[in-house]
Amino acid sequence: MLLHRRIYQFFIIYLLAVGFLFLVKYGMGLSDYVIPSPGDIWQTGSEEFVRYFSDVLNTMTVAIVGQIISIILALLVGITGRQATWFGSFIKVAAYNVQAYPIVAIAPIIFILLGDGVISRLIIAAMICYFPLLLSVIGIMSEPVADIEHFYRVTGRMRWQLEVKIRAFENMSKLTTVVAGSATLAMAGTIVAEFIAANAGIGYSIRIALFQSDLAKIIIALFIIGITLSVYQGLLEVSGYMIKKGWASK
């Protein structure tokens, strides 16, 4: 249900955006060089779809691994830093500060140090989505669920694992939204990394298409990125829903 909604919502947005481009193209009488014609896009799509789809899957794989690393790190640090301690506040300040650095400035340094392989892309993807995730996890984990926690505290049965579980369960929809949202960030981070310096993935292909002033290729790339990301986000939301349902039934 969630997956289905994600996909058709993406189609609506994509078609509206492309429709707007055509409106501008034909309204202003622009050539295919400025905005490609529907026929041009169709032809490019039929020629490049398979190659671009494989590029998007390559990028997506890196983004997913980067996101998983980020989620694990964010949970570890978020749980540790959830209390109003000096360390907790230090983590928050560090997260805000590091997030303020633009990735386009940091990425070349990473590529110089680690080369233009998968590791650099992975680190950049993780960096992009890690901090928003961390801030949300800290926010959720540092907010007590007073009604439920009170019972366990007064009965002396509260342990940190239980506290984390209660807070995660009560905020599952919030957590799912953040994780799904961070997928977009991980994907965007990986694409930026590829655009800047990598030798593979859809970001790299977009860069070549830009060199060739080929907007039709970029429109096709955006379609494949969008649809793949929508499916992935939909699956994450479904997973969140299933986990919550599973916990509730125990």
Binding site: S31, Y33, V34
Partner: peptide, 28 residues
């Protein structure tokens, strides 16, 4: 070349391959 068509510039500098690609896509 895109800026010429969009009326944002009247003159510009472009590489030869840009010019030829633009011509092949009907740019004026």
């Amino acid at each position: 070349i895109r800026e010429l068509e969009l009326g944002r510039a009247q003159f510009g500098v472009a590489s030869a391959d840009q010019v030829i690609r633009a011509l092949s896509k009907g740019a004026d």
